[in-house]
Design a protein around this nucleic acid. Structure first.
Lengths: 162, 162
DNA sequence: AAAATAAAGATATTTAATATCCTTAATAGA
DNA sequence: TCTATTAAGGATATTAAATATCTTTATTTT
């Protein structure tokens, strides 16, 4: 069980968009080039963010994406769920219902105990993702690299932002 | 991203094995029949548990599986990891390394900030799974179904246990 | 009018999950 | 000793999901 690589892409793209000045847009092409990703496929991840309402889009030359919310209003969970979907990572097939000793017509009152635990773990995962904001990520990313690389990266981005 | 259904199977099988009297074994055939699962494929999940050292096996007629530890010594995480593997659910492809502004030869000092958060969430998931023991599951399962169904189920199992 | 863009649908390609089948070695019981 | 039954593991097939690529369309800026 491994998350789609699109999750990683979307998080990095949002981090870049977070640094974009108000009113400007960054295209799929620029985001793909900056991260060394396949443009067409990255586009699908960005479409997911758009459908979830986390980015605004603009058409035509100088079009592209910008965040629809402030970086403090966006969490990891928002972005992960936009790309990966909101369904739980454990699916209960209710195999207890196959127990040959069951009276026919017997019906469970509650979800399977196995599923309940797995879903609690899933929720712990989501809770952690919910607790980290995009603004936290940007802050950490900035600390992790030399200031001049940070600066030149945003110059590179701004040259391509419409 | 969804866990293998074998995870669900392994957890239910361990719960049954937890109720098996000392020294007795339950075969793949019986476990598959009890849960309505494909015997050959379930066998692979049980082999994973065996390789991880959580069950003992016995060959020949009246052979099969029994737990290698007490239900209190086995956690959800043990069983999930035996079947699903221990690798993290988020793989970092280090796409920050593709940043065109990077000086060649530049080397990161720490893992990517995106990955660090995703791995913390992964760890929260594991921590929750680590906190629930097989004995807890058995207790809950027993509470969830009528006592007579519980009893007849174990009679069914014991009739087939070598 | 021309060029660039996002969106979305169609279609491959690759990888992982889900099986099934077969052979081998071990073992219990007749 | 013989037979039936078992786990283990390898080989292979099938199905579903992830990863891409290509094309068309509508929109918008210049």
């Amino acid at each position: 069980m491994i998350l789609k690589s699109q999750v990683e892409w979307a998080l990095h793209c949002c981090a870049i968009l977070a640094g974009l000045p108000d009113g400007r847009y960054l295209s799929t092409k620029a985001l793909a080039e900056f991260h060394g990703l396949p443009k067409e496929y990255l586009s699908k991840a960005l479409q997911s963010l758009s459908q979830a309402g986390f980015v605004h889009t603009s058409l035509g030359p100088s079009g592209g994406y910008r965040l629809a919310k402030t970086p403090a209003e966006l969490t990891f969970l928002d972005i992960v769920e936009a790309v990966e979907g909101k369904s739980r990572t454990f699916v209960c097939n209710n195999i207890r219902a196959n127990n040959p000793c069951r009276p026919s017509g017997y019906c469970e009152s509650s979800p399977c105990a196995v599923a309940r635990v797995m879903w609690e773990a899933d929720e712990a995962w989501r809770q952690k993702l919910r607790s980290v904001r995009l603004s936290d990520l940007v802050e950490t990313l900035a600390k992790d690299i030399p200031a001049d690389l940070w600066k030149s990266s945003f110059e590179w981005v701004l040259e391509r932002a419409g």
